[in-house]
Design a protein around this nucleic acid. Structure first.
Lengths: 243, 243
DNA sequence: GAGTGGTCTAGACCACCCG
DNA sequence: GGGTGGTCTAGACCACTCG
């Protein structure tokens, strides 16, 4: 009975209170990426509830994608590994129909700046770091991306060495800044290329574009990144499963 | 211990075997839409396992969307009510920003026919009933739809009275033909309008189109419907949540 | 072999729904 | 009031991981 469950509505069931308590301990960064959270038996002892109830709380967090069980080893933070790549919107296949090669990323610009209106509205601040990237598959440009991340969460991002960047940003956010992107919303629409975008993507001005606007949220619900990505509509292809 | 759990791998855990057994009893139509399945206590007795294990099995089916618990009443089949409307891909808002009115549907054609190649590939048969609809919001045409459903699952569909049709087909499938659409895959891409589609949607030939191809599956995994829907790309808007 | 999560038991009491 | 699902207990044994 060591842990007080903080500020939880007393009427909530025990498993819900433990789930919330664990979520806030996770959000506070108490456990690193490869350090297991306390065992179920231990949590049961510490919170004075039974193991079955602890399991139900942990089940909830696992279902939410925050935790990951490893049998025989422990329960760990899940690395921010959900398939959030924007390439899922673009099907580029070789002549044999096989999925094409590994995406690459060319960093065009990175600087502390004032957010454009749309990004400011999404992030709730205009103090941001702006990033412009061109992303390619098999040396063919596919996506032109403009990103803004909150300066208060990513202090020093501008001065990271280029070598720190891989094709994916979210692992970098996590490893260097402790920002765990938990969810994102992608907004898809359709438009036409202006001169700048056309030049970057090797299209003609006026060519049809798929436009994706994304807002990504931290584990505590704070919006930490806003981006707009543009790619040729001709290459656009998206599969959505429902049910 | 009344029920034999049919042909289940003996090595599977008890909850998994019960889950599969219940799924196949559901698929066989043993319980109607407003008839509860046996209570948890009863299932525990009949299958010779404990209530906690029954709950875990039922939890799985609830998570899959097959069942729905109603506290104090029982556990029921979930009506096929997932939001599968293709209008979710098209944002049509009034000048005040409010979502626009109720979708309407104009039935243009309905006949037993031979499926086109793509539909045959998806359905595994070319013996189908074809349906062509034009769907509108606020009297403005938004979607031009071409559907094919398996003739063996929808015997007599051609001769339903027009009055049987509402804007949504899946409730009709369920109520009249016992076909419960459990999941579907939507494939989105962009293309250009041909003369026929342009005329129906009040566009110009060559105008950009959003094209959605859907395959819908029965509860037992059989593909029962394939459709292709086209709408103006300018109105296309889709929001996807990930995480 | 010690510790972890995975499965399972055989109950209990509660909140809720409905006839 | 009787039956239902919702929560919870206090254990058990197993399969797995890792030092």
């Amino acid at each position: 009975m060591a842990h007080r469950i903080p500020s939880a509505d007393e009427r909530l069931p025990a498993y819900a209170r433990l789930r919330d308590a664990l979520a806030s301990r996770i959000a506070s960064g108490e456990w690193g990426p490869n350090h297991p959270i306390p065992s179920e038996a231990r949590l049961a002892r510490e919170y004075g509830i039974s193991i079955g109830t602890v399991r139900k709380a942990v089940d909830g967090l696992v279902a939410e994608g925050l935790l990951e069980r490893r049998q025989g080893s422990g329960t760990y933070l899940r690395r921010p590994s959900f398939d959030a790549t924007l390439f899922r919107f673009f099907q580029v296949r070789g002549p044999d129909g096989a999925p094409s090669s590994i995406p690459t990323s060319e960093l065009i610009l990175r600087a502390r700046t004032k957010a454009p209106k749309e990004a400011e509205a999404a992030l709730g601040t205009d103090d941001v770091i702006g990033i412009i990237r061109l992303r390619s598959l098999s040396d063919e440009p596919v996506l032109f991306e403009e990103l803004y991340i909150r300066a208060d969460r990513f202090a020093g991002f501008e001065s990271l060495p280029d070598s720190a960047f891989g094709p994916l940003l979210y692992p970098l956010y996590f490893d260097r800044f402790g920002v765990l992107v938990k969810r994102a919303t992608d907004d898809l629409s359709f438009g036409r290329a202006d001169e700048q975008v056309a030049a970057r993507l090797k299209l003609k001005p006026g060519d049809p574009l798929a436009i994706i606007r994304r807002t990504a949220f931290d584990i505590d619900g704070t919006p930490v990144e806003w981006r707009i990505a543009r790619g040729s509509a001709a290459q656009f292809h998206y599969r959505s499963e429902i049910g």
